Every structure is written in C-alpha cells, then in structure tokens.
Amino acid sequence: MIKTLLLGTFIISMLTGFGFIPAILSFCRKKNLYDMPDERKVHHAAIPRLGGISFLPSMLLAAVIMLLAFESLTGVRKVTMSVWTVSFLISLLIIYVVGIVDDIVGLGARTKFFFQIVAASLLPLSGLYVNNLYGFCGIHEIPFYVGFPLTVLCIAFIDNAMNLIDGIDGLSGGLALVALAGFMYGFYCIELYVYCVMIAGLMGIIIAYMYYNIFGSVARGLKIFMGDSGSLTLGFMLSFFIVKFSMNRPDFIPEGRYFLNLFGNPMAYEKICLVYAYTLLIVPVFDVFRVIFVRLYHHTPIFNPDKRHIHHKMLAAGLTQHQALFAILGIQLMFMVVNGLLVPHLDITLIVLLDILLFMGINVVITHRINGRKKQPV
C-alpha cells in the first residue's frame, strides 16, 4: 500500500508539472522574464527562468491528494500537525517566496542569505537540529547551543550549494534526483513514510522540469530554467532531509533499527545515518567549499559569482554540457559507492578525510586537462 501511495504521488506531481510548466513558459513570454546570457553563463540565448515556481505547488498538491486518499481507504492518519510541521512549512514558504522575488525583480546575495538564516533558524527553534555527530572528530552528542548555529549554517550552506551548482542543463535537478532517491530509500527503511511521500512528489515535478530543461527547444520556446525559486527550494528541502535523517531521536527511530546499505549489509541506523545523509550531497557541498577557499586565496569576495565551479571546469576541459552533466552525476554516484564500501570498516572522520582527498584528486585531474588544452596549438 505504501508503494502505491508513493507511485501515485510521483505520477500526480509529474503530470501536474507537465501541465504547469507550459503555463509558466507562456507567462514568461508575456512578461518578458528571461535569464539573459552573459560572460559567466554558458547559455547563449534568453531562456525563461521561472521553472522552479512549479516545484512546491506540484509537490504539495500530489502529497495532499494521495495522503487524503490513503487515509480514506485505510482509516490510518499519516500526517499530524506539530510544531516541526508548522515551522518547516513556514520556513519553506519563506525560501520559496524569496526565490520567486529574486527571479522576477532580483535580490542581492546578502539579502537572500539573511532570509535563508531566518528560515533555517525556525527549525532548531522548533526542536529540529543536529544533536549528534556520531563520532566525527571524536564528537558525539552536542548541546542545543552548539547544534542551533551548526544546523542553521548547514541549512544555509546546502541551500546555497544547490543554487550555485545550477549552472548547466539538468545538473541541479539531476543531483537533487540522486539525493532524493537516496533519502527516500533511507526514510522508507526506517518507516518514516510521510517524508517518502514528500520526496516522491518532489521527484515527480523534477522529472517534468528536466524534460523541458534538457530537451526543450529554444526555437519553439519550450526550454526553461528553474531559477532561484527552484534551486533554493530544492536546497532547503534537501538540507531539511539531512537534518531530519541524521538527528538522533530514539523516540522516533528506536535504537538498534537496521536498514541495508548500498551492498545489502544490514547496519544499525545510528552507525550509518550521518555518513549516509552527507554522502548524498557530497558534490555540491564539496564544490562550494572548494570555491570559497579559492576565492579567499585570491582575495575575492565569497559572494561574487565566477566560473570556478566544477561544471565550469568540466566545460573548460572540453566536455559538452551533457557530457559534463553525466560526468558530475557519475562522480556523485561514485562517492555513494565508495562510502557504502567504507562505512562498515572506518569511522566517519576517516571517511570524510578520504572523501576530501578523492575530491581534490578529481579536481587536480580536471585542472591538468584544462592546462593541457591551453597548451595545445590553435
């Protein structure tokens, strides 16, 4: 029954997206709302940028319809309004509105960051925060006064990471799909099915969006970008799932509950949860860390946009947009496989260190390829 609920949510959301996005395209044409090409962007034509407006309504509509249908058929109530629920919905709405305003009239990076901090702060204030690092750097349980700022910074950072990596067709959406599939599996294994329903709804609308984003014809006016309304919404949702999945709550997730890792080995939830959650977003998170360090090294403001992100480097190395997309998705999947192999044998600190070294090595290889291309005779 749960699988039917998830499939129905996915299909309704996807079909809603296929109906919603053409209407957004028409609205953008009438109001002249386009993402214009410049020296930092890789597209060469004016493209509508409001695709992300469809994400939140499609997800919520599909989830509500299927949850009500499930309750009607089974008599089992799967959703209850709690302080967490209300805080999450208010925070999500703040991020969604900020993204829309930025897409239509434009907002400065510091203004967006301020609202991200406000939205993120509502979650720990309602009791949802990172309260255990499970041995990372020798740290286990952490108090609220440490978990509060840590949670806020993590949410704002991931939100910006998904926004900043949205630089080529399908990349932000593709990375989000990979992460969402992983979170759905994780929440399903620990029987938190309401989150699986939300994820199914989000995955459905992303599939519809990616069809227009990757395969939509510019000449026919069918191509669209998600804009900040989409990337910020995705980033906030994914950061919420990371905090929720990795939070230590024995009352919700009984101690000793097991689920399967990537290779079928049963492992305790407490052993794998933080590694599992962070692994699903390694590429966008590590990429933003790397870019920040490079900007600091070159004494440039960290909020200034540039062409130092991994997708820019892939293009500079000679890959096409589609090749870069599949290469970056492949890197993300590789990290998931590697960490799935390592987590039964190493503690989280060593795993993170090895991940950093591997990511640095990948970037060294890409940089070497770029330098080699520059030396080639024209």
Rank of each mutant, 00 (worst) to 15 (best):
Y258V: 15
A316I: 05
E255G: 06
H298N: 13
Y258A: 10
A324H: 03
L315G: 00
G318H: 10
N304E: 15
P266E: 10
I253C: 06
R290L: 00
P266A: 07
F252C: 12
I272R: 02
G256A: 04
P301N: 05
L296D: 00
N304K: 15
E270C: 01
A317I: 10
R290D: 01
R295F: 06
A316M: 15
V275E: 08
Q321L: 10
G264D: 06
L274M: 13
D287E: 06
Y297G: 04
T320P: 04
G318L: 09
V285S: 05
F303C: 07
Y269R: 04
V283S: 00
G256P: 03
P301D: 05
F263P: 06
I292L: 09
R290F: 04
M267Q: 11
G256D: 06
G318Y: 10
V291C: 08
P254S: 08
V294C: 09
I272F: 01
H312Y: 02
F293L: 13
Y278Q: 05
P284C: 02
E255L: 12
I282L: 13
A268T: 15
R290G: 02
V283Y: 00
F293E: 03
V288S: 09
Q323D: 10
H309C: 01
L262G: 09
K271G: 02
F303V: 05
H309Y: 03
F252P: 03
P305Y: 06
D306A: 07
Y258M: 14
P254I: 07
Y258C: 08
M314W: 07
P250T: 07
N261C: 08
L262S: 11
I282P: 01
T279C: 11
L274E: 03
A316H: 12
K271E: 12
T320R: 12
D287M: 02
Y269S: 03
A268Y: 14
F263M: 10
L262M: 12
D251Y: 12
F252H: 14
T300I: 14
P266D: 06
P305H: 04
F293N: 01
D306S: 14
V288C: 07
F303T: 12
I292N: 01
V285W: 08
D287Y: 00
Y297A: 14
H312F: 04
K271Q: 14
N248T: 07
K271V: 13
P250V: 07
I302W: 07
F263R: 11
Y258L: 13
V285Y: 08
